[in-house]
Amino acid sequence: MRNLTALISGSLFGIGLLISGMTDTTKVQGWLDIFGQWDPTLAFVMGGAIIPMAIAWALTRNRQPVLGGSFPAAVKPRVGHDLIVGSVLFGVGWGLVGLCPGPALASLSYGGIGGIVFLLAMIAGMWAAVPVRARLLPAS
């Protein structure tokens, strides 16, 4: 059952990313490009996505997930070096090409060779994160 939910959720996520236009890198870079031809679409996507999620978080109170277990506990509001360094790196890469992990997966079937190369490089980066975290950010 958990796998079926994950498949349904992943499918909705992929379809949402396609119809929202967020797999088009010019729309993402256009939103980040405040000094160019600014494209507001991403703000509407974020706003649209936050509404069902906020309702979902409200529904988690005093309840359990349908398939059992427990809801993810709120993590301590700690902003460590890893969060800052990681978010800066992510943002620079996101602005450079206009892809983040979700759209990189969703556009795999129609994103051409560039999309495939990006995904492979992203996977390499994820793999590299384990030793990098251990060596560069041992305290945080």
Binding site: V85, L99, G125, M126
Partner: peptide, 10 residues
């Protein structure tokens, strides 16, 4: 960009 996005998000 792929390397930075993968490393950064993790």
């Amino acid at each position: 960009a792929g390397l930075m996005v993968g490393l950064g998000t993790r």
